[in-house]
Design a protein around this nucleic acid. Structure first.
Lengths: 199, 199
DNA sequence: GTGCTAACCTAGGCCATCTAGGAAGATAAC
DNA sequence: GTTATCTTCCTAGATGGCCTAGGTTAGCAC
């Protein structure tokens, strides 16, 4: 009988597609095997186990996302860069929800250290804020704020966590405005500055 | 033989404790039954199925969280209220991780409409920002920003998503400063305001 | 064709969810 | 104290997912 032509990469790719359809948390080697018309056990020649499969998807997804972020920030600075970065990320989360979830998967440090995608995401993230001229540790704080806000927004958006009739896109635009202002008026003194941020 | 004395409430409570230990996504009726020294099937007299159990935990957890948020904002306004609210939420996420995850579970609208905890969380959330005097739709946008930021921060914190050596508590304090400033200098005109926020 | 290296198989163990129907404890009625 | 009843908890078993061990076969190199 004809073979399905499985390889680790092809299995990972199919798992990523499956994740986009049913959610990263619901990928199953059985479902994947069914998709290839193959017995469950056949996949274990290409992938160690379910955990390994998930890690592979996470690494693949990070590469995808890094490419998009790089495109979205290339040749831009300041708010253009901020908005491009954030909206590319959001677009990724919306059109590739399973892969997006995969990028949030906690990974061993050793895996991250060898995942080009994860490393590129980090460096792009730091780089795209350079025009705001924030010194450390404010830069790290700012990045944590952005990451937190985006991740929270996307996962609330995905789980329909926003009930209010207010248009989500309008909120998104406003949030980017606010973040841009916050970055430009970043409070640099230790707490307590009141009505005007110094700059 | 002595009976375990199961009721729906006691099962739900135990499930919440289990969730805090192994993660909300990893609660299992088998593990729960083991914990009571009872056969798996015995739990199905008190709980319809795993989904139902999870929903019950979510409703219970929301009640817990609402109580804490109410305490943390009582008699406070402005930044005190903001910081109390946010830190109570964070404390909940850190000390009751399973219950916290449960509060993020997507629920049917009908379930939310009957969950006192979920409803109270919403009303407390809106109320605790009243001192900032934001009109709609800015208030909704602001709440979405806060919810997104908190949720993202907590889930990144829980999954060890912050690698940088910068102290997390310091970042947290700074983020609250920034959010407070953002709320006080909320850009109210449609985009494009540049170096100073009007007020 | 022969041999080799994969890709893929069957069989089966383990553990999870969940249903059906039965037994045994608790409670109240008499 | 016996009886009737309700609820609690049981055993048995179906289904389906993960995963291992070991065998078979397709496809390629020569």
């Amino acid at each position: 009988m004809a073979r399905a032509g499985l390889t680790a990469d092809r299995v990972t790719e199919a798992a990523a597609e499956l994740a986009d359809e049913v959610g990263f948390d619901n990928i199953t080697v059985s479902a994947l095997a069914r998709r290839f018309g193959v017995a469950d056990a056949s996949l274990y020649s290409h992938v160690k186990n379910l955990k390994d499969l998930r890690v592979r998807v996470a690494v693949l997804a990070a590469r995808d996302l890094a490419d998009r972020l790089a495109d979205a920030t290339a040749g831009r600075a300041g708010k253009e860069s901020l908005a491009g970065f954030a909206s590319a990320w959001r677009e990724f989360a919306r059109t590739r929800p399973g892969r997006y979830q995969a990028t949030q998967m906690p990974l061993d440090a050793a895996v991250v250290a060898e995942s080009a995608g994860h490393l590129r995401i980090m460096s792009i993230t730091y780089a795209h804020l350079s025009a705001y001229g924030l010194p450390e540790p404010d830069l790290t704080d700012a990045i944590r704020l952005l990451r937190s806000t985006y991740q929270g927004f996307f996962s609330l958006e995905a789980s329909a966590g926003f009930n209010h009739p207010r248009d989500l896109q309008d909120t998104w635009t406003k949030i980017l405005d606010v973040l841009d202002v916050a970055l430009r008026h970043w409070p640099s003194n230790p707490q307590g500055n009141d009505h005007e941020s110094p700059h």
